[in-house]
Design a protein around this nucleic acid. Structure first.
Lengths: 356, 356
DNA sequence: CGTGCCGCTCGAATCGATTCGGCCTAGAAT
DNA sequence: ATTCTAGGCCGAATCGATTCGAGCGGCACG
């Protein structure tokens, strides 16, 4: 009457078989503690006879107080996050940064619904957490992390807490890009922004939306553009994707009489969409329309060398990883702000009819 | 003299404060056990007063025997894996497949060096594991998983164990693609393969390398091609990337006298590299050279509609995730084999000088 | 030959929560 | 009024390993 009752051996079993105490067996395994070679060998032999696969990670992490896992919180579904090359690059950087820890990366998504989820941000066996593009709706989770004493680092997100932040010069960079457009002679510039709120509301840029903005990145980039083009308006996209950029640009470029001579897109994917929309309408880029992007990724299928504000995504991720390592070793980590560089490609030029 | 000694409250503390036993407090939190509303409320109040952030996941997973984490084993470094769109799609599918579990995804890499690593495949608090493109060098790890009783599913990998496999019709699909090339009139076909061994040896395809192959995918696709073109030879790439494809194709196409009229690449990224190499040499694709890929992804920067064998990557991942769910609920899971479809794009055509 | 020291091994406490059987009490039924 | 029942709550064992201080035996030195 033992259906599948094959209880896995425990360290105690191994110890018993080897004729030593559990404590000694434990030392023989993990510790570099004072154990004679003979004993260690005997323990290992007993273990292999019993088919013991090493200490249970769960028990070990309970006792040790560390799980060897670093959580990465993505605001979107995993599928959505992976569509964004910038996120991938950051993840890459993070994994590089935490390499000295030898820790695993646990992908967590902020679904907002802690209900069913066995493992949410609030209840995951992680030693530290990296928040990617976190928004205020994570406030509760962040509070829970703080109470648990789990160190956290935020990439491009306003936490309002004492969490170190890894960011870039969104405002200054965009201003630099806008400045470049002005120098080319553009005066009539439209903007396609990233979403401002958690609901990802699409549509025209309104002051109301701006005031209730919960997305620092979008707000800062917009502010930077407006330092050069105070009157500039445009549309809010629902996400960073070619599709969204296409849709926004169709609206912006629909009326030939009110067409801007340049578009500032807040991401390269959006910019690619804008270019697609322009080509649909028979406009030449950059002759009829200049397009400026942001990110510095290579966009799938895009046949232009996009003029863009290249940000060091991998370095950002790496810095976040390094901050995690620092915090785990007790040092207080510092926030860091990276600088983006203007890459001039072939999607910007002087406006055809210089109106200035 | 308490430097930072602020020991986090435990469930016992909360229970004491609420004037109930730890067991009751536990029920108040997680269980839907028989606890009066009044008591539950009192416990929750005590918890919030103490700043208790909920049960410790480590302790909970020890007791429960489940961690709510599913491991995903990538053969390469995280950075490398994410460069491959196929892997991303699979990951996406996996996360979809295990959604009912509400489990987190732990990224693990098979570095081969368990030494420093705090969390390796062998010692990670996971409830189940998905192996992506696992090779025989994982044998030890797989054995450890088996001993631990951790269910595993393999995608495109020969495990040699009783692990369910999710695969595609590599051989038949490639044969279909090769058949298509033959119908177009090609007789002189070269092949660019994925690596055959863990060392990722580059160079010409040799029978010796084939015999010692540890990569089923590469072997099967090659075999499929040779069912149509038995004499076909070519080069082994060091990875699935445009760069590797470029390098391999440069070697293949270097000598104008011995140029094939078509190249069968074992991945779309390799195919893109082949096309790039051809264009470097002033060859027209498909007029001078037909190129066949494998995967059906959209390749970054490629200006062709690649003729390729499209495989359902997301579905594969989802199937793997579903298999995990099944195994965790006790049902014996089944292996599954998906079918690839030939997508005819604009990179294949009849050879210019039909030599047949 | 005695003592001191060093290195290996062992016991027992601990990490924090979960779970199961038992007990107690209040309300209902007879 | 007494017994039966059932809902609530508690105690104690348990999950599996780690860790620290104590104990003990052997070797070297005086």
């Amino acid at each position: 009457m033992q259906p599948d009752a094959a209880p896995r051996p425990t360290l105690a079993d191994v110890a018993a078989r080897a004729g030593v105490s559990p404590s000694t067996a434990s030392l023989a395994f993990s510790g570099s503690g004072p154990v004679s070679d003979a004993t260690k060998e005997r323990v290992l032999a007993a273990a292999s006879e019993l088919g013991y696969a090493g200490p249970d990670p769960r028990a070990r992490s309970l006792r040790r107080g560390r799980s060897g896992i670093v959580g990465v919180v993505l605001e979107e579904r995993v599928r959505a996050a992976f569509l964004d090359p910038v996120k991938i690059q950051m993840l890459d950087g993070i994994s590089e940064g935490i390499a000295p820890l030898g820790a695993g990366l646990l992908l967590l998504t902020d679904t907002g619904e802690p209900g069913e989820h066995a493992v949410s941000i609030e209840s995951a066996p992680v030693d530290a957490v990296v928040l990617i593009g976190c928004s205020p709706r994570l406030a509760d989770s962040i509070e829970a992390l703080r109470r648990r004493g789990i160190p956290a680092v935020a990439i491009e997100g306003e936490t309002g807490e004492d969490i170190p932040e890894i960011s870039i010069d969104n405002l200054q960079a965009t201003r630099r890009g806008a400045e470049y457009l002005r120098q080319l002679g553009h005066t009539d510039v439209a903007i396609v922004t990233l979403p401002f709120d958690a609901a990802r509301t699409r549509g025209p840029i309104t002051e109301e939306l701006l005031r209730s903005s919960t997305a620092a990145t979008a707000s800062q980039r917009l502010a930077g553009a407006r330092e050069i083009f105070p009157e500039a308006t445009g549309r809010v996209a629902g996400a960073s994707s070619i599709e969204e950029g296409l849709e926004a640009a169709r609206a912006l470029l629909a009326d030939p009489a009110r067409r801007p001579t340049a578009v500032i897109a807040q991401s390269d994917l959006l910019a690619a969409g804008v270019i697609q929309a322009a080509e649909e309408l028979g406009l030449q880029v950059p002759a009829d329309l200049s397009v400026l992007g942001f990110d510095g990724i290579r966009v799938d299928g895009l046949q232009h060398d996009l003029t863009t504000l290249a940000q060091p995504s991998v370095a950002k991720g790496r810095a976040a990883g390094e901050a995690v390592v620092q915090m785990l070793s007790g040092e207080p980590p510092a926030s860091r702000c990276f600088t983006s560089t203007l890459h001039v490609g072939d999607t910007t030029a002087a406006p055809r009819a210089s109106a200035d």
